[in-house]
Computed example of a mutant assay.
Amino acid sequence: MVESVLEVEVVYAAVDRQVLLSVTVPAGATVRDALRKSGVGAEFPELDLASCPVGIFGKAIADPDARVVLAGERIEIYRPLLADPKEVRRLRAAKAAEAKARNQ
């Protein structure tokens, strides 16, 4: 009996480079299975594939160990944010308010 296989993509963008890998996985493979099989961990040893945040087509996956991949999906590995966007906006608004108060 021939085992059914699926083709998926794994993408990761580091600060200095990005990679898109095509991976063939058996039907029923999970997101973490596809990550391990992709070899992205060998290219980026700083990645902890067992716990890194991931998503599919821009939507975060809550449990990558249970989520089964479908043919043609793009698994994205997310980096931690360098700055909290809410904090950056708050600081920018405070700076603008301060500048406005000085100019009046």
Rank of each mutant, 00 (worst) to 15 (best):
V15D: 01
A42W: 14
P85W: 09
S4A: 14
K37F: 03
Q104I: 03
K95A: 00
V19F: 10
D16P: 05
A94M: 12
A83Q: 14
G28L: 00
K100S: 04
N103P: 01
M1R: 11
A99I: 15
V25R: 07
L6Q: 04
I77Y: 07
R92G: 06
L49I: 07
Y12F: 06
V5H: 14
A27K: 10
V54K: 10
M1Q: 14
R89I: 00
S51Q: 05
V69S: 04
A42K: 07
E87H: 01
I77A: 05
A99D: 13
E87M: 12
N103W: 13
A27W: 14
P26M: 07
V11C: 05
G41S: 12
L47D: 00
S38N: 00
A71V: 04
R102G: 03
E73L: 04
T30A: 03
K59W: 11
V5M: 12
A42N: 10
L70P: 09
V88K: 13
A29L: 02
N103C: 09
G58H: 07
K59F: 04
D65T: 01
E7M: 10
G55W: 14
S22F: 09
F44H: 04
S4V: 13
N103G: 05
G72M: 11
S22N: 12
S51D: 09
E87R: 15
D16A: 04
L35W: 07
V31Q: 09
A27P: 07
A101K: 01
A27M: 02
A96Y: 06
G55N: 09
V68Q: 15
V11S: 01
E87S: 14
L20Q: 08
S4D: 08
G28H: 09
K37C: 12
V15E: 15
G28T: 08
A60F: 15
E73R: 06
T24G: 11
E98L: 06
A99E: 08
V25N: 02
P85Q: 13
A97K: 05
V31W: 05
V5F: 13
P53N: 13
I61N: 01
G55I: 03
L82Q: 13
A13W: 02
A101C: 04
L91F: 14
L20Y: 06
A83S: 07
R67C: 05
L35M: 01
S38C: 11
A93H: 10
I75K: 11
T24S: 05
L20T: 07
E46M: 02
I56Q: 07
A97L: 06
K86C: 01
A71Y: 05
E46L: 13
A97T: 00
D65R: 15
I75P: 05
S4K: 12
C52P: 08
Y12D: 11
A97D: 00
K59Q: 11
L21C: 11
R79F: 02
A62F: 06
P53W: 04
R90Y: 14
R17D: 06
A50V: 09
Y78A: 01
L81F: 01
L35I: 08
Q18R: 12
K100R: 12
P45H: 08
G58A: 00
V2G: 01
K100W: 02
F44G: 09
E76Y: 02
Q18F: 08
A83I: 08
L81R: 00
L82V: 13
P80A: 05
G72F: 10
E98T: 11
D84E: 07
V40E: 01
A50Q: 09
E9P: 07
D16G: 13
E76Q: 08
E3K: 12
R79M: 12
Q104T: 10
I75Q: 05
G58Y: 13
E3R: 14
